[in-house]
Design a protein around this nucleic acid. Structure first.
Length: 876
RNA sequence: GGGAGAUUAGCUCAGCUGGUUCAGAGCAUCUGCCUUACAAGCAGAGGGUCACUGGUUCGAACCCAGUAUCUCCCA
């Protein structure tokens, strides 16, 4: 036999991927005669490389897309990347630093030149990696969120929303990332539980030397920004200080004591220092009491000259130093540990600094309301639906979106400032100038008089337009593509970005196209290691996806990932999973090898009708089940259905039933059916295992130039007459087979030792019809119907029939008796429980007729079994 | 602190409208087999008080209440 004994994916994967591309199978265009099916990829970070999360996510998308393509839909999977402003800028800055270049020494244009160079060099890597996985994207449609067309879309949207009054500029407390040197949105802040220290500081009461008010704070370095100390008016401990002034420790500046019920009496000392520039709550308090704002921090988190002390020091260094100095001055009362929450930046990990700054915001209320509604009314379905609760909670408490970032890598905010400080918002400089002239009434205003905002937009402000912008829906809102492919069908993404991205795409879709961007959102879990830890570079617990593909084959890896990943559940990755996937490909390969080895003898009669009928019926049931799993987005279950159909039903049973003796020929009819079954199985498996199925497809027959399983028609379930009966009868026959095999195992007989079977049966027809199947699978030479048990035989009971395997000299009467008694005992217990149910009048009155009928049948079966078992015992 | 979800075999999970497809699947485990498609395999077997305590019901893994533990989201 010339076909390799084990399947070697490396030999075929690249070949088929190339062929598919040459054939243009992945290309999609608006085609009114076909039903559209579109998916947009969650654009990976342009600087990224493929990780396990991408593997899972893109495998699922590819399964959906490939199946849709086979179903005859115009399947369009749009790939692309996003520019990931903070992450990319940080990488470029780091790279430049290695070369001895400081970002500060570069102009914006110079920096962007470096960034683009870097993007050109590394930006496509991840997409190339996806091809190795088999992703059937329409690569001609590859988009990048910062390319000119998409940038224009972003700017248009900004201008539009500004005109609608939804974008505004204001001083707000933002989350400042001192390391990234930029504001980040609420959603990019991660709260971490930590133990922090609470410092009790002594503020001297003005005019009462030696009298102190003790204030507890976790941030002693901010006292220089204090503008008041607040007390609860109802706190009896402090009534004597109402109206007093206190002196800031070390600094000596006098600040008022204010009263506000906001202060909680039992937290800390009940006295709260008020630092409006560096705490959101303090800021609110300051507004209410009309207090000044003193900002003592620089962008990088160091103290500025307004602090007067520790100027130039980093906030954490300043904290250490001021604690030392306070202690030395006797102004530190005590330090205690307490559990607190540290806000950190998702991007850089730096501790977030609440900071007042002038930023651009997008009002959310108007956008959030309809976006909530379409999820509530299932116009967009989340899978699994438990995420609906989370989605609702967020949408009902949504805050305005801080969309400006103090970076260079990204779309620059299209706001232009006039010399007088006012601004206009316009798509480009010319229009801005026009507007500025109108606004100022100064017709002589020149472009050089305008200054464009320095900041760029949040990357999500590009990504939220993705399902529209990839089809050029902003540039040309009525183009054929967008009209045909939008709304897209399914979105596959991670729950972590449900709000960042999914919710905002829904908002954008409704706002700009009055239509939802997709119908289904499939939320994958996080890929973790076997111990449940998140995969991370620092832990080194993440395998390299490309190594995995090289070792186990893309098909093996794809199925391995899917075996254990129900929607929304984390995937505990274990190499055993991809091994299982690889083994599955090998199993299929060998089934194919077997059929390839058969010689046909055209004169042979068709002897396998029972097997063929049965497998046809099995196939029908499995297809219905498979389609149902797909409709419900139960991908693991869908795969498992195919897995069992192929491995158990096709290989372990069907092929064993029809397989001729070694080197014996097969009849043409059986071969025809078998090949046809195999082709159907290849189609059903193709979305999961595209490469091996394509390889076998072409090995199985000479194929025409366009005849690929990749574009074969998805099989329609074909009902089989009397299918349910066929399945039930085969099940009975296989039970008999299992009974014989069990005896072989118990008695240590080899799988091939010829045996005979005798039976006292109530279903002689079954034995007659399935004689061939049973004899073959159980390796029996003869099955005979008898009146009485043969001497010296081992027996078993299935259904109401008793079977005997004569075994001269190998019968252990005692053990045999014990076994039968145990079975009998169980059967009696079972019968009694049914009897009890049936003798309960209320049950008989209340239970539905079919339930009652089933119970009666149960009773009859049990009675029959008991009778047979007793007979067997008597015979011993 | 507020909210949501979960708890079923050693592991990962199914289990629909309460009732024979109700205690399941895959993996793992154990036993025996290198039986000419496959040892990346074949055959067989064992394994669970459905977290706990009550309640509703003729009947509960499923419905209700409480308890415990875990996870996630928000503050």
């Amino acid at each position: 036999m010339s076909i390799a004994k084990t399947y070697t994916p490396a030999d075929v994967e690249a070949k088929w991927y190339q062929r598919w591309q040459e054939q243009g199978f992945f290309k999609a265009k608006a085609n009114p005669r076909k039903q559209p099916y579109s998916v947009v990829i969650p654009p990976p970070n342009v600087t990224g490389v493929l990780h396990m999360g991408h593997m899972l996510n893109n495998t699922i998308q590819d399964v959906l897309v490939r199946r849709a393509r086979m179903q005859g839909k115009e399947a369009c999977w749009v790939p692309g990347t996003d520019h990931a402003s903070i992450a990319t800028e940080a990488k470029v800055v780091a790279l430049l630093k290695e070369k001895g270049i400081d970002k500060k020494d570069l102009t914006r244009e110079e920096f962007l030149k470096h960034a683009w160079e870097w993007k050109e060099k590394y930006g496509g890597i991840i997409l190339e990696q996806l091809k190795k996985l088999g992703a059937s994207c329409d690569w001609d449609r590859t988009r990048f969120t910062m390319e000119p067309e998409l940038t224009e879309a972003v700017l248009r949207v900004f201008v539009d929303l500004h005109q609608k009054g939804l974008i505004y500029r204001g001083i707000r407390m933002v989350n400042w990332d001192p390391q990234g040197g930029t504001a980040v949105s609420d959603e990019e802040v991660i709260a971490k539980d930590t133990m922090a220290k609470m410092y009790h500081l002594r503020y001297e009461v003005v005019g009462q030397a030696g009298q102190f008010l003790t204030v507890a704070t976790s941030r002693p370095e901010t006292i220089m920004a204090d503008v008041a100390v607040a007390l609860n008016p109802n706190d009896p401990r402090y009534t004597h200080l109402h109206g007093a002034k206190v002196r800031i420790p070390l600094l000596g500046r006098e600040i008022p004591v204010i009263l506000d019920e906001y202060v909680s009496i039992d937290f800390g000392t009940g006295a709260l220092k008020v630092t409006p520039a560096h705490d959101l709550n303090d800021y609110e308090l300051g507004l209410k009491h009309n207090l000044p704002v003193i900002d003592i921090l620089n962008n990088d988190g160091s103290l500025n000259e307004k602090a007067e002390l520790y100027v130039g020091q980093d906030r954490f260094a300043a904290r250490r130093n001021i604690v030392k100095d306070l202690e030395a001055a006797g102004l530190l009362d005590k330090v205690e540990e307490y559990a607190s929450v540290l806000q950190t930046s998702e991007r850089t990990g730096a501790v977030i600094e609440p900071r007042l700054s002038l930023q651009w915001f997008l009002k959310m209320e108007h956008l959030a309301k309809p976006a909530l509604e379409v999820v509530e009314n299932d116009e967009i379905k989340l899978h699994p639906p438990k995420f609906k609760n989370m989605y609702r909670a967020w949408m009902e408490n949504v805050h305005d979106w801080c969309i400006s970032r103090q970076l260079w890598w990204g779309q620059r905010i299209p706001a232009y400032y006039l010399p007088d400080g006012s601004f206009v918002v316009a798509l480009n400089e010319e229009e801005a100038l026009k507007l500025a002239r109108e606004k100022s009434g100064n017709a002589n205003l020149q472009a050089t008089d305008l200054r464009q905002d320095e900041d760029v937009l949040d990357t999500w402000f590009s990504s939220w337009l993705w399902p529209i912008s990839v089809f050029d829906g902003f540039k040309d809102p009525d183009n054929a593509d967008v009209n045909y492919f939008y709304p897209t069908n399914d979105l596959v993404t991670a729950p972590e970005i449900l709000f960042f991205w999914v919710a905002r795409m829904i908002m954008a879709g409704l706002e700009f196209r009055k239509q939802v961007p997709f119908r289904n959102v499939y939320l994958t879990g996080i890929v973790r290691d076997a111990q449940g830890r998140k995969m991370s570079k620092s832990l080194g617990n993440s395998p390299d996806p490309l190594d995995l593909i090289a070792t186990y084959g893309a098909d093996g890896v794809r199925t391995g990932m899917l075996f254990s990943s129900p929607a929304g559940n984390d995937l505990l990755y274990d190499v055993k999973l991809v091994e299982q996937g690889r083994n599955f490909t090998n199993k299929l390969w060998n089934a194919f090898r077997l059929t390839q080895g058969w010689e046909v003898d055209a004169t042979l009669p068709f002897v396998n009708a029972k097997a063929v009928e049965w497998f046809s019926a099995k196939l029908h049931v499995a297809q219905l089940e498979l389609d149902e799993h797909f409709e419900k987005f139960r991908m693991s279950d869908a795969l498992m259905t195919v897995y069992k159909l192929v491995w158990d039903d096709f290989c372990s049973f069907y092929l064993e039933m029809v397989k001729p003796a070694y080197q014996a020929p097969i009849d043409p009819e059986t071969l025809r059916h078998t090949t046809s079954f195999l082709e159907t199985l290849l189609k059903l498996m193709h979305p999961f295992m595209p490469f091996i199925t394509e390889e076998i497809w072409h090995e199985l027959a000479e194929r025409g130039p366009k005849d690929y399983v990749c574009v074969a028609a998805w099989p329609k379930p074909a009902p089989v007459t009397g299918g349910a009966d066929l399945l039930a009868r085969m099940d009975k026959a296989l039970e008999i087979v299992a009974g014989v095999r069990n005896i072989r195992n118990q008695k240590g007989l080899g799988p091939n030792k010829p045996l005979t079977l005798a039976t006292k049966t109530d279903d002689a027809a079954l034995l007659h019809d399935y004689d061939g199947v049973i004899r073959k699978l159980a390796a029996l030479t003869e099955i005979s119907v008898v009146e009485a048990a043969p001497a010296a035989s081992v027996s078993f009971v299935t259904g109401g029939s008793e079977f005997f395997v004569p075994l001269e000299g190998q019968i252990d009467l005692v053990a045999e008796k014990a076994r039968l008694e145990k079975e009998l005992e169980y059967a009696i217990g079972f019968r009694d429980s049914v009897l009890k149910k049936l003798s309960n009048e209320k049950f008989v009155q209340n239970a539905k007729p079919d339930v009652l009928e089933r119970e009666r049948q149960k009773l009859a079966d049990a009675e029959a079994k008991i009778a047979t078992l007793q007979q067997s015992l008597n015979n011993l």
